[in-house]
Amino acid sequence: MKQDLTIRALTRKAHNLWDRYVDSHQHGSFFHLTGWIHVIQDVFGHQPHYLFAQQGEQIVGVLPLFEQKSLLFGHALISTPFCVYGGALADQDDIRRELENAAYDLACDLNVDYIELRDSHEHPCESPWFRHCHHATFKNTLALPAEDLLSGIKRKQRAVIRHAQKNNLSWDAKDNPALCFELYAESVRNLGTPVFPPALFQTLKDTFGSSCETLVVRDVQGQPVSGVLSFYYKNQVLPYYGGGTQAARDLKSNDFMYYQLMLIAKERGAELFDFGRSKINSGAYHYKKHWGMEEQPLHYRMALVRAKRPPNLSPNNPKYRYFIRAWQNLPMGLSKQIGPMLSKYLG
């Protein structure tokens, strides 16, 4: 370790310094920002353990961490739950390693089952870390005019979008987190997944302001059929929580929505469309591949502390099969009551 390097726990007065560091770091992502402390602690009740490296008066590295503790799903330290990217950012590799060593020591002190780093870019695997990623993300450069943007999409998906454009769909990008959440909640219930607390979408909007926007698509009768909550950061747009009603499939309104979001984002100055992570070979994974975007594996790492083997919280795990089928048949109201008690540990 460099002689004057210290690893410290983040305090409230250093939030602005942390965020400025993330803004300036080439790998700094939206999910490294301190706003997530408020979102995850207030909505899900998980304890933050943010660490930063300091030399003199300067921050030279950051590592956001949250502790999740559940009798059903285990005890973990994660960077960062409910987020695609996380892990350490640092000026140099030796500083990053010191942050990761401090995080592992913290995991041991907390006696967790494991610690997971959702690195935003690839790092070498050194003991006690090992690769633990079964997800990919998809990215696409945004082009104008609109026809150039459309021509960058695979031919079959272009046909789907053109079909959707004939369905008299309308859209608006007014701030409407509550409506967007309702559409998302119905969608995830239909997939057999517990929904997040309703407060999540409004809290994200309140926390991140103009960097968080919703887009809602309506059918010819004016009924909402699809919605997505997106983040804007640096030169990117990240559609993060999207879904639709049963009618969305026939109307192709989700396809219409994501294409419209590309147009809106480009007008806002975004240059990159980050479609988010999906489990490899899942339905969402294949849907995104149809758009012809660049697939990038996610370089997550893990270290075991108390656990003897890595956890398997995937919906493809056979032990969750009957639970998923039962959940798909729950009334919407009941799924929204029970879901938040489970989903808080599935980030």
Rank of each mutant, 00 (worst) to 15 (best):
S79R: 04
E100M: 13
A88G: 07
S230N: 05
M1S: 13
L346F: 11
N176E: 13
L229P: 06
M262W: 03
I264Q: 06
N140T: 12
L179Q: 13
L313M: 05
K154D: 15
F275H: 07
M341I: 01
L200A: 12
R96H: 04
G222E: 09
G74A: 09
L33C: 05
L117Q: 12
K279P: 00
Y259C: 02
H75F: 04
H27C: 04
F82R: 07
W291V: 08
L110C: 04
S127F: 15
R277S: 07
Y259L: 03
D255C: 05
F130D: 09
N168V: 06
F323S: 01
H15F: 14
A284F: 00
G61C: 04
N281Y: 06
V216D: 07
G242L: 06
P315S: 04
D250C: 02
I338S: 08
I7S: 09
C125K: 11
G35I: 02
Y184W: 14
W36S: 03
M341R: 14
T11W: 02
R268C: 00
N168E: 14
T141D: 11
G244S: 06
F66S: 03
Q221A: 15
E98G: 02
H32E: 03
A270H: 01
D255M: 06
S314M: 07
S226D: 10
T207G: 07
N329G: 10
G28P: 00
A76F: 02
E98S: 14
D274F: 01
H46S: 09
H15N: 08
D274K: 04
Y232N: 01
Q165E: 15
S70F: 07
Q54S: 01
S210T: 11
E294R: 07
N168D: 14
G242M: 03
